[in-house]
Computed example of a mutant assay.
Amino acid sequence: MRELCVEHLGEHIGTQVAALAKPGFGLRPVKPGIPAAGLGRWGGPALLNPGTPWPEYDGVPLSLFAVLDVDALGAWLGDDRPPHALLNIFYFDPDVQRGYVLEGAPLRDFESPRFCRIIPADPALAIEEAAPAPASIHAPEPFYAVPVVTLPSMQGVSYDPVLDTVDYGGETEDSLHYRSMPGWLAADRLGDRWLEFCERAQGLYRYEGVRFSPDQAFGWPHLENSFSQLKEPYRHLITIGHHDLGDGGYVHFVLPPKAFRDGDYEQAIALYEGF
């Protein structure tokens, strides 16, 4: 990965971009001969400690999108992991078939931290809790996790603003576009090559005939659009695209770095990618 960065960006810039790398996991549906990542799965009932209230947004129960078994992922994350072993991932996704009334429903703030919730649980104590109406119910599907190396996203409508933190020296002076948005230099010179490397060498985003699979835990997420919330540093927890979120839509769940380290999931926000 470092060799690829240096080849296309030079030693000065390439070394800095390579230093941004973070470990992550590509998430894939379990198949014969490959066990699930512990209790990890998309959908199904939540796994909550007894007495934990079901999360809501504006009085509407959230939907359980995934359960992430952090301990089952092993040592690949090193120190780059949150402090809790089991995480329930919720998102606002009510179902009209379960009694949600669209007509007259108030406008929702997609950028509100309450639009999603991350609720930790103790694997030794957690019990299954079914989603109350009108939250959507997604069929449970276990996943397995493939260790990968990730870089800030360099594809799509906009690159990850983390790339603006790199010292590009004088290489941005020849382009007005690079001077105003220096991260475009890395995206232009490395973006396509990095995506090809991810697909070919890591099976990340595309694998075994699957056209595009954004599902990923930790590392840097694959961003297709720009998000104002990412002007400050952030940490990525999970990206979920396995549910029916519209025409190719998926959701990134991110936190501020300190909140990630401390397990303060109240500060988590969801970034929705829709097409």
Rank of each mutant, 00 (worst) to 15 (best):
R235D: 06
Y207H: 15
H236R: 09
E208A: 13
S228D: 15
R211Q: 10
F227V: 06
G209P: 08
Y234D: 03
H222P: 01
D215H: 05
Q216K: 04
Q229I: 00
W220C: 04
K231R: 14
Q216C: 02
A217G: 03
G219K: 01
D215S: 12
L230Q: 09
S213R: 07
V210M: 06
R206T: 14
P214I: 00
Q229E: 15
Y234K: 04
E232A: 11
D215I: 03
V210K: 06
F212S: 07
V210C: 10
Y207F: 03
E224N: 15
F227G: 05
Q229M: 09
P233S: 01
R211E: 15
G219E: 09
Y207E: 12
W220Y: 13
H236C: 06
K231G: 15
P221C: 00
R211D: 13
H236L: 00
G209N: 04
Y234N: 03
S228Q: 14
K231Y: 02
R211V: 12
S228N: 13
W220L: 02
G219P: 04
F227M: 04
S213H: 10
R211M: 11
G219N: 09
D215C: 11
N225C: 04
K231I: 00
L230W: 06
K231Q: 15
L223A: 02
P233K: 05
G219H: 07
E208V: 11
E208Q: 11
H236M: 00
H222N: 13
P233M: 07
A217F: 02
S228R: 12
Y234H: 13
R206H: 14
G219A: 00
R206N: 11
F218M: 14
